[in-house]
Design a protein around this nucleic acid. Sequence first.
DNA 1: AACGTGTTCAACCGCTTTACG
DNA 2: CCGTAAAGCGGTTGAACACGT
Length: 220
Amino acid sequence: MKGEDNYKKGLWTKEEDRILLDYIQVHGRGRWNHISKITGLKRCGKSCRLRWMNYLSPSVKHGEFTEQEEDLIIRLHNLLGNRWSLIAGRVPGRTDNQVKNHWNSHLCKRLGIKKENGKTAVTSLKPHSTNVDNTPKRQALVDSISKPFHDYNMDVGEVTRRQCPLSGAQVSEEQPAEVGWHCVDSFWASTAEHLRECTPTSMEFLEGYYSPGDAFWQGL
DNA sequence: AACGTGTTCAACCGCTTTACG
DNA sequence: CCGTAAAGCGGTTGAACACGT
């Protein structure tokens, strides 16, 4: 007989929310599995964590997505694919779940993107260079590009221009590399209006910038 | 009013990754 | 290292609601 069999599932009630909020106010977040033992709340740790992260946390923004947020999500999805956590990390106040739901229920439809085998097709990421059609290499590149985005204090319309370390160089505010600036500009600097003009993604920029035989691709 | 269908989104599931003793 | 627990992630489900007939 497992303890978790006693855990409740389904929508949270206001009373359950209150218990969870009270717990976090006193003990802080974390140690989610202890909540049921301490408070008597009949929810597993995983459920408590999710409820806090996706709804109760004061950092979570509720309500309609703005045009700017949607623009940003479309751009990031174009670059990163279904990496919702990474995308949400660039959309202030929005959770990965919110972004994912909004993409699947609104943006996907609006952009006319169909799903293939239950997964969203990301046509813009299809490589056109023979040197980058290998999935692991391509993924590594996407990773190398996306990682430094955590370092940006980015807000739509107020882009903090910093180096995008295209060739593995350290991010440096003092000495941004030319190629890095170019990449950041082409990806970030345009507005919602420019989106409709098919501004190239960072990936497309790279594939255009480096020739198929360039040593840049070898290191990936 | 009653029913069927479509849509939305909160929550769950299963898996992977990370942290820690 | 190794094993375990906790945290994190993306895909999926299903309840609640909206809307059309």
